[in-house]
Simulated scan of single mutants.
Amino acid sequence: MSNINAIITGVAGYVPDYVLNNEELSRMVDTNDEWITTRTGIKERRILTEEGLGTSYMARKAAKLLMKKTGADPDSIDAVIVATTTPDYPHPSTASIVLGKLGLKNAFAFDFAAACCGFMYAFDVACNMIQSGRHKRIIVIGADKMSAITDYRDRATCPLFGDGAGAVMVEGTTEEGIGLIDSYHRTDGKGLPFLHVKAGGSVCPSSRFTVDHRLHYTYQEGRTVFRYAVTAMGDDCAALLEGNGLTQNDIDYVVCHQANLRIIEAVAKRIGVPMEKVLVNIQRYGNTSAACMPLVLWDFESQLKKGDNIIFTAFGAGFVNGASYYKWAYDGDSAAVKK
Results as ranks from 00 to 15, higher is better:
residue 202 S to I: 10
residue 76 S to G: 04
residue 222 G to S: 15
residue 59 A to Q: 06
residue 183 S to C: 15
residue 241 L to D: 03
residue 33 D to V: 09
residue 273 V to W: 13
residue 219 Y to R: 07
residue 49 T to H: 00
residue 250 D to S: 10
residue 128 N to Y: 07
residue 318 G to T: 12
residue 230 V to N: 08
residue 226 F to V: 07
residue 56 S to L: 10
residue 232 A to V: 10
residue 106 N to K: 09
residue 17 D to S: 14
residue 129 M to C: 02
residue 301 E to L: 09
residue 245 G to R: 03
residue 122 A to Q: 03
residue 234 G to M: 12
residue 9 T to D: 05
residue 151 D to Y: 03
residue 87 P to L: 05
residue 305 K to V: 02
residue 178 I to K: 13
residue 68 K to A: 11
residue 307 G to F: 04
residue 198 K to Q: 11
residue 142 G to Y: 04
residue 227 R to K: 14
residue 12 A to G: 09
residue 68 K to R: 11
residue 120 M to L: 15
residue 217 Y to G: 09
residue 8 I to E: 04
residue 321 N to L: 01
residue 209 F to H: 06
residue 254 V to K: 02
residue 155 R to V: 11
residue 218 T to R: 03
residue 69 K to D: 06
residue 329 A to D: 12
residue 118 G to C: 04
residue 154 D to H: 09
residue 227 R to N: 09
residue 42 I to Q: 08
residue 168 V to S: 06
residue 309 N to E: 01
residue 217 Y to S: 09
residue 141 I to H: 01
residue 157 T to L: 04
residue 130 I to Q: 05
residue 90 P to V: 14
residue 64 K to W: 13
residue 139 I to H: 07
residue 12 A to K: 03
residue 133 G to L: 04
residue 181 I to S: 01
residue 32 N to W: 04
residue 74 P to G: 05
residue 207 S to Y: 02
residue 27 R to P: 00
residue 299 D to Y: 03
residue 203 V to R: 10
residue 260 N to C: 07
residue 25 L to C: 04
residue 172 G to V: 07
residue 274 P to L: 11
residue 46 R to K: 14
residue 194 F to M: 14
residue 115 A to C: 08
residue 317 A to G: 15
residue 322 G to K: 14
residue 11 V to Q: 00
residue 28 M to Q: 14
residue 65 L to G: 13
residue 141 I to L: 12
residue 198 K to F: 15
residue 181 I to Y: 00
residue 111 D to M: 02
residue 186 R to G: 03
residue 1 M to R: 10
residue 145 K to N: 09
residue 318 G to H: 12
residue 192 L to S: 11
residue 203 V to K: 09
residue 238 A to C: 12
residue 201 G to F: 11
residue 236 D to V: 04
residue 71 G to M: 01
residue 180 L to A: 01
residue 89 Y to F: 15
residue 280 V to N: 12
residue 304 L to N: 05
residue 130 I to S: 00
residue 56 S to H: 03
residue 38 T to A: 13
residue 276 E to T: 09
residue 321 N to Y: 07
residue 260 N to D: 01
residue 326 Y to T: 08
residue 72 A to E: 14
residue 30 D to W: 07
residue 46 R to N: 13
residue 274 P to M: 07
residue 10 G to A: 15
residue 69 K to M: 13
residue 248 Q to I: 01
residue 268 A to D: 02
residue 173 T to S: 01
residue 316 G to K: 01
residue 321 N to H: 09
residue 310 I to Y: 05
residue 235 D to L: 14
residue 240 L to P: 11
residue 334 S to T: 13
residue 42 I to Y: 04
residue 79 A to N: 05
residue 160 L to W: 02
residue 68 K to I: 14
residue 240 L to M: 06
residue 107 A to K: 03
residue 119 F to W: 10
residue 264 I to E: 07
residue 133 G to I: 08
residue 106 N to D: 02
residue 296 V to H: 05
residue 187 T to L: 02
residue 192 L to Y: 15
residue 142 G to V: 10
residue 280 V to S: 06
residue 196 H to V: 05
residue 175 E to M: 12
residue 314 A to I: 00
residue 28 M to N: 02
residue 322 G to W: 04
residue 92 P to L: 08
residue 199 A to T: 07
residue 330 Y to C: 07
residue 339 K to F: 10
residue 131 Q to N: 10
